[in-house]
Simulated scan of single mutants.
Amino acid sequence: MSQVEVAKKLAAYRAVDENLPPHAKVIGIGSGSTVIYAAERIGQLPNKNEFVCISTGFQSKQLIVDNGLRLGQIEQYPEIDIAFDGADEVDPNLNLIKGGGACLFQEKLVASAAKKLVIVADFRKQSKHLGEHWRQGVPIEVVPIAFSKVTRELTKLGAKKVDLRQGGKAKAGPVITDNYNFILDVDFGIIEDPQSLHLKLKQLVGVVDTGLFTGIAQKVYFGEENGEVTVWG
């Protein structure tokens, strides 16, 4: 295991150990390479049969099952005690870009239902401003029949580039989300006011949600290159 991977594991374990309420009944588990270790740590708890875990998509559902945890649905448990998730980029105000794995809507649904959202990531996700290091653009989930219209409107809002995310070698044609929608990756450059941009994007008819998470995360744990852990928040 590389030093960075060791740090990611330490960050995830610390995030769980320092934040998981002792009598939590419902826990949200997101996706990402660092969240794998958070799920692993939660799966080591002796009382894991006393709570249920809510997934944010297919990958996190597999993490829950593979670690011997009880899987629940957000329809059954709309109030979540705490959620652990990853991020593609984080600024010092704990604003996030998420959605690199195309699960942004369900991730935001679980995050908004949680009393506390804790992010675990590696040092490469730290930025002074969103859009500084994450150059793939802000993921935006859109209803398929609206993607052409939304693409034109995004350009009018100042988007430098709009890409309909493709399945690549694994699939001919665009990526389809767990909600049967498309993903647009939109490059706005450096984002000075993520909340304002998110609100403008949400007003566009056809936009389901955006990968801008503002005012939601309460703590972020980073696995550093030197093997240490940094905590923001």
Rank of each mutant, 00 (worst) to 15 (best):
E5Y: 03
A7F: 01
K8M: 12
K9M: 13
A11E: 05
Y13S: 10
R14V: 03
A15I: 07
A15N: 04
V16A: 02
P21K: 10
P21M: 11
H23D: 15
A24K: 08
A24C: 06
K25D: 04
V26Y: 06
V26K: 02
G28R: 05
I29V: 15
G30Q: 04
G30N: 04
S31W: 01
G32Q: 02
T34I: 08
T34G: 04
T34F: 02
A39E: 02
A39F: 01
R41G: 05
I42M: 11
L45C: 05
P46W: 05
E50G: 03
F51W: 10
S55I: 08
T56W: 04
T56Q: 02
T56H: 06
G57W: 03
F58A: 12
F58E: 08
Q59T: 13
L63M: 14
V65M: 12
V65D: 01
N67H: 15
N67S: 07
G68Y: 03
R70N: 15
R70S: 13
L71A: 06
G72V: 08
Q73I: 01
I74A: 01
I74C: 00
E75T: 15
P78D: 08
E79V: 14
E79Y: 12
E79D: 13
I82Y: 03
G86Q: 03
D91Q: 08
P92G: 09
L96A: 05
I97S: 00
I97T: 09
K98I: 13
Q106S: 13
Q106Y: 11
E107R: 07
E107S: 07
K108I: 08
K108C: 05
L109F: 10
A111Y: 03
A113I: 08
K115W: 02
L117Y: 11
V118K: 02
I119M: 01
V120W: 01
A121L: 08
A121K: 01
S127N: 09
H129D: 06
W134S: 04
Q136N: 12
V138A: 08
V138H: 00
P139Q: 09
E141K: 02
V143M: 13
I145R: 13
I145W: 10
A146S: 15
T151V: 03
L154C: 02
L157Q: 10
G158S: 07
A159P: 02
K160Y: 11
V162E: 04
K169N: 12
A170M: 14
P174I: 12
T177E: 05
T177S: 13
N181R: 07
N181W: 06
F182G: 08
F182E: 07
L184G: 09
D185K: 10
D187A: 12
F188N: 05
F188E: 06
I190V: 15
D193W: 03
D193S: 14
P194L: 11
Q195G: 14
S196G: 13
L197D: 00
L197R: 04
K200E: 12
Q203M: 15
L204T: 11
V205N: 10
V207S: 07
V208M: 11
D209I: 09
T210N: 09
L212V: 11
T214F: 03
T214P: 00
T214H: 05
G215H: 09
I216N: 00
I216T: 15
I216D: 00
A217W: 04
A217Q: 06
V220Y: 00
V220H: 01
V220N: 00
G223C: 09
E228Q: 14
E228L: 12
W232Y: 13
G233D: 07
